[in-house]
Design a protein around this nucleic acid. Structure first.
Length: 889
RNA sequence: GGGCGGGUAGCUCAGCGGGAGAGCACCGGCCUUACAAGCCGGGGGUCACAGGUUCAAAUCCUGUUCCGCCUACCA
């Protein structure tokens, strides 16, 4: 002993680097693809190849790693499948920005060269996030890393596309879609972010043909009037219903507009008359279908007015808006302008305001797929946790609209469809066709669009495992055990994986979906670049260590609530790491010579504190495992924290110093064995949360093996459970605390030893104190402990401070030290508190309804409480009375 | 408009039918050699508001209010 096995200062950085390298070298993350019957698998939500680690990733991957590490330790064949997403628009934008710096556009390179350029970019700058995930300690099976654009996954994508097309679940057509004029592509409904902005509501007069009256319409986007082809009113609107069937004249343009009646028009809104622009508004597009209206497109793909826009041709949409309003005003068509908050849709990638435009796009018919996905959650094949998200899931699935999957960009899976230039036949095929199956011509031109990135993500749980081949991996690990994600991609990703998994694998992609919180800043704001409130996980890891960071995230990951991350909190858990480190520094020299494991069968006659700590450890181990399995990460973390710091360190180690340093060899040996066992188990319980520090410490513990990663997990052992020891220890700790409390209240320095006298009420309690006299003396800093026998009705010391522990009175003689007034005040305060509680309990117990209707154990509990409180009250009153008498005479 | 989550100690949050909890902050005392990133002790809350159900409500129900988020074709 005496030699430090661990350096005095805990240096996370060095330890983390060293252990991660060791794990990778030893291939400890690798899952076997042979089925054992006890499998556990998770597929990572693939981060974008352009991404770098943010708090969301940190939380998401920490939780996954906790689940993975726990199950691996508990003996499961465990797979954590890693990989990345090609992130179509995001990646293309990055590379285009690079080109721009060189004064180039992607068109200057051409499609092939551009894509080459993206691959080059990926090779050099892509995937930095993977190293960041390693920094976080993620124990992914890196040998199996996949990329959504790699060959295998591309084959899966094609296979799926072809099958869906053949099944009539993919179609192509001219529809109105969300168009991003900046990214030059269509977007799905989900890819549009809605936002409110202040704008105006313009009232414009449309003269009715053949009369001197006008219809006044209200619009927030006057520029679209250039494409108006009708005016709609509610068919029940008394003001206008007689006009239905007639025509209005479009100001400035002069086009005749049919006046139609349709229930979508809200008579209450604006003027009750709606200008209809089928080519630039979704509602209007749908009106055009119902009423067979002409669709006049007036904007091009850049958001500029086209040749249909009379003399506004060539203007930007916003420029045109101003010009139109001015001209309408000049010509007397503008009836009014009012401020109005308008809903704006923005591209989720570049934040540009999207424009509804009609174009030829590919769609997935979602409803039949959604039906299956709903059923799978309804019948419990997949559970969503926390449960309340199922409602949101159903809500969306039930109102699902067809999914626009084509994107007019270059980086992505090119749609496997060809058009015959000779006969216009469309060929969708797994292999590139060379001949038109219809006219046998050879002039086939492939579709230029690529697929929505989320199309390939939707296949991730099986495409990464080798599908369409029936691989061993797939047979072993599909369906996966759990998917861990934040709710923001519940629709984008989770819902679509459900649909595709059920369609192509015939089974759900995962048994559980665990939806975790969003990480916000300490004021509850979403972290974002524009707000400048981002906390960089890498800086946190540098500053506090990865383990402290991970533990913080886990400790704060309560279900159904967002995390407000504050550095203070992280600092607190950094201190916890330090505490663990120092506990190990104390323990290791004592246990280094231990050569035998704890024999649970042999502990019955071990000293009380040894039995107590083993029993508590056993309980905590069960609690932690339960909590992890039910995704209560915060409970697991709290449970270990509390046990480690306030039971193991504060009590057990303090107790253990005596036997370890004493001259009783047998006692020391026992304590060393128990200490080794508890320290080893603790490292195991902590390992899923704080993998690095635990490995480092465990590597110095004899008999603990070369790694914690492969377990075993400390399973519950009934031979260690000892409720009696726990109750007894609680009493002794109370006794010790009461003496410490008196010392502190009397303003005596902690180093002052005090004499104490206790009056146990049973011989069992008396024996308990006698057997544990040494510990009681040293932990309570008690000089002499006088245990009064109950037989000879002992007298308490004349001048003393009193405490009542359970039903046992404790006296600390303080002749000449204690200030009677102070002691009286202290006792009165304590008494008031206890009496108040006692009143509550007595009230309950005198309530007949309570006695008759409450559960018997509840009544019993109150009775026990009454007994304890009454005992305490008596003791305190007695002492108070004595003090008062002493004071007076 | 519809839906969801939340308002508990100064701060951040657990608890979600039977004794109001934790961490941080705060106050007092300690360099008791594993740890001052620590040790010992302590103070602090009509659990948003109003009703109801129950023997019993922070916890369940209803309403009000204030925050946050998701969703939607009021132009």
């Amino acid at each position: 002993m005496g030699l430090d096995l661990l350096p005095k200062v805990y240096n996370p950085e060095e330890i983390e680097r060293r252990w991660y390298a060791t794990w990778e070298e030893r291939k400890l993350f690798h899952a076997s693809d042979r089925k054992t019957g006890k499998e556990y698998s998770i597929v990572i939500p693939p981060p974008n190849v352009t991404g770098s680690l943010h708090m969301g990733h940190a939380l998401n991957n920490t939780l996954q790693d906790v689940l993975i590490r726990y199950h691996r330790m508990a003996g499961y064949n465990t797979l954590w499948m890693p990989g990345m997403d090609h992130a179509g628009i995001a990646t293309q934008n990055v590379v285009e920005r690079q080109l721009k710096e060189e004064g180039l556009r992607r068109e200057d390179l051409g499609r092939e060269k551009f894509i080459e350029r993206v691959w080059t970019w990926k090779a050099h700058s892509g995937g930095v996030i993977l190293n960041q995930l390693k920094r976080l300690g993620s124990s992914c099976d890196w040998d199996r890393e996949r990329f959504t654009m790699d060959e295998g996954l591309s084959r899966a994508v094609r296979t799926v596309f072809v099958r869906l097309y053949e099944d009539g679940l993919i179609y192509r057509g001219d529809y109105i879609v969300n168009w991003c004029p900046r990214c030059h592509t269509a977007l799905s409904d989900l890819e549009v972010e809605h936002q409110e902005a202040s704008g105006h509501l313009w009232h414009i007069r449309y003269p009715v043909e053949g009369s001197d009256v006008s219809l006044v319409v209200a619009t927030t986007r006057p520029e679209t009037m250039l494409g108006d082809t009708a005016v709609a009113v509610n068919p029940n609107d008394e003001r206008y219903k007689h006009l239905i069937g007639g025509y209005a004249i479009l100001p400035l343009v002069g086009r005749r507009l049919k006046i139609i009646g349709d229930p979508v028009v809200d008579p209450e809104f604006g003027t009750g008359a709606l200008k209809v622009t089928p080519a630039h508004d979704l509602t209007d597009f749908e009106l055009s279908l119902r009423h067979d209206l002409e669709r006049v497109t007036v904007m091009d793909s850049e958001g500029r007015i086209n040749e249909n826009g009379i003399h506004f041709n060539g203007m930007d949409r916003y420029e045109c808006r101003k010009a139109i309003v001015t001209e309408l005003d000049q010509k007397g068509y503008l009836v009014g302008t009012e401020p109005y908050n308008v809903g704006l849709g923005r591209c989720y990638r570049c934040k540009e305001v999207v424009e509804p435009l009609i174009s030829k796009q590919w769609f997935v018919k979602a409803e039949p797929l959604a039906r299956e996905a709903i059923a799978a959650v309804e019948d419990g094949r997949t559970r969503i946790i926390p449960e309340h998200w199922t409602k949101t899931y159903y809500e969306w699935m039930n109102n699902i609209r067809d999914w626009c999957i084509s994107r007019q960009i270059w980086w992505g899976h090119r749609i496997p469809a060809w058009t015959c230039q000779d006969c216009n036949e469309v060929v969708v095929s797994l292999d590139d066709p060379t001949q038109c199956p219809s006219c046998k011509g050879s002039h086939l031109v492939q579709e230029t669009d690529v697929l929505d990135t989320w199309f390939s993500s939707a296949l991730w749980p099986f495409s990464t495992m080798g599908w369409p081949d029936q691989t061993e991996l797939l047979k072993t690990f599909y369906p996966t055990s759990c998917l861990v994600t934040a709710f923001d991609i519940l629709f984008f990703w989770v819902a679509r994986m459900m649909m595709m998994g059920l369609k192509f694998m015939g089974d759900v992609p995962f048994r559980d979906v665990y939806i975790h919180a969003l990480v916000r800043d300490e004021y509850g704001k979403k972290m974002s670049k524009s707000l400048g409130n981002i906390i960089d996980p890498l800086m946190i890891m540098d500053q506090y260590g990865t383990d402290a960071f991970r533990f913080t995230l886990a400790a704060m990951a309560a279900q159904g609530r967002d995390i407000r991350l504050s550095e203070q909190r992280i600092e607190g858990y950094r201190n916890f790491m330090n505490k663990i480190w120092n506990a190990a520094r104390f323990a290791l020299p004592h246990v280094e010579s231990v050569q035998e494991r704890l024999d649970p069968a042999a502990i019955r006659d071990y000293p009380l504190p040894e039995r107590w700590i083993l029993s508590r450890l056993n309980t905590v181990a069960t609690e932690v495992a339960d909590a992890i399995r039910t995704y209560r990460f915060n409970d697991a973390a709290q449970s270990i924290y509390q046990f480690t710091w306030h039971e193991f360190c504060d009590w057990y180690i303090e107790y253990a110093k005596a036997p370890l340093g004493g001259d009783e060899a047998e006692a020391a040996r026992r304590t060393r064995i128990v200490l080794r066992h508890v320290l080893d188990s603790l490292m195991r319980l902590l390992h899923p949360f704080t993998p690095f520090i635990t490995e480092e410490i465990a590597s110095k513990i004899p008999l603990s093996g070369s790694t914690l990663m492969l377990g075993p997990w400390p399973e519950s052992d009934p031979r260690l459970a000892d409720p009696e020891a726990e109750a007894q220890m609680t009493l002794l700790m109370g006794l010790i605390t009461s003496v410490r409390n008196i010392r502190a209240e009397m303003n005596l320095p902690p180093s002052t030893p005090l004499p104490a006298m206790v009056f146990p009420t049973s011989s069992a309690d008396r024996d308990l104190i006698e057997y544990n006299r040494t510990m009681t003396l040293s932990l309570g800093r008690i000089s002499t402990l006088d245990v009064a026998g109950s037989a000879h009705n002992p007298q308490p010391p004349r001048m003393s401070a009193t405490a009542v522990v359970g039903d046992m009175k404790v006296f600390v003689p303080l002749e000449g030290i204690v200030d009677p007034d102070a002691e009286i005040a202290r006792l009165e305060k304590e008494l008031a508190k206890i009496e108040q509680e006692l009143v509550g309990v007595q009230k309950k117990l005198s309530n007949e309804d309570f006695l008759a209707k409450a559960k018997p154990e509840a009544v019993e509990k109150q009775k026990t409480r009454r007994h304890e409180l009454a005992g305490k009250t008596d003791g305190l009153k007695e002492s108070l009375g004595r003090m008062q008498r002493l004071k007076q005479g």
